[in-house]
Amino acid sequence: MSQVKLQVENITKEFVNKGEENLIALSDVSMSVGVGEFLCIVGPSGCGKTTLLRIIAGLETATNGNIYIDGKIMNEPGPEKGLIFQEFALFPWRNVEKNIEFGLQFTNVPQTARKEIIEKYLKMVSLTGWEGRYPYELSGGMKQRVAIARALATEPEILLMDEPFGALDAQTRNILQDELLRIWKETGKTIIFVSHNIEEAAYLGDRVLVLTARPGRTKNFHPIGLPRPRDRSGSEFVKVRESILKEVMEEVNDL
């Protein structure tokens, strides 16, 4: 692996429930993600993959363990990581342009430079001309494009994606997967992508991490050695997909 960008070290997460037994969502999870790597995380539902991503993002505090970025502890939200939500999370009172501008208002980007940045990322997600539209006027796929542009605008080095295409129809999802790969190649970001869709994970990732059933532990890392663009129906792809699926199913059946 190339240089390490992000390191997850011994992360344990326990949710304290009053009167009930505490829920251990993650148990001693460690991993390293390389600079520019595309890592996908899959696992049975409830295995804590979203929790892990939220801890990396800094939205959730781990009970134990630390997150390192470029070797430095980074447990809070910060400009080096951007997060994309399944539910898009666009600000409905802001039009497309203003949504993308949001993060720039809280970094030291001068007003004059913002326009250029917004245009650049609008173009990157193929939404030039939609600046003035409000979120309610956009389809799900377009909303997620705006959310991606918004996250990219502050130029984080790491992009965290929490089932970003889960709410989209199959066709739109496939298109956005290809767009995401293109953007990843153009920008060289490090991407951590949580999915419940194994085909999606195998199609996108350099590696696919399978988490165990609750409490989530790292079960296995699958390097997907296939060249891109990957052929979803090719025999090698199907083989990789099946082996990941088998591991996930083992966990599901254990429940």
């Binding site: 939205l59 951007g82 539910e87 208002q105 809280f106 996250a151």
Partner: peptide
């Protein structure tokens, strides 16, 4: 909650900023 979280990861972390902008 998701809008507050979206704002926080975009660098809007102070209470006053969150109240005003979100």
């Amino acid at each position: 909650k998701v809008l507050v979280e979206a704002a926080r990861v975009l660098g809007c972390t102070k209470n006053l900023d969150l109240m005003r902008s979100v």
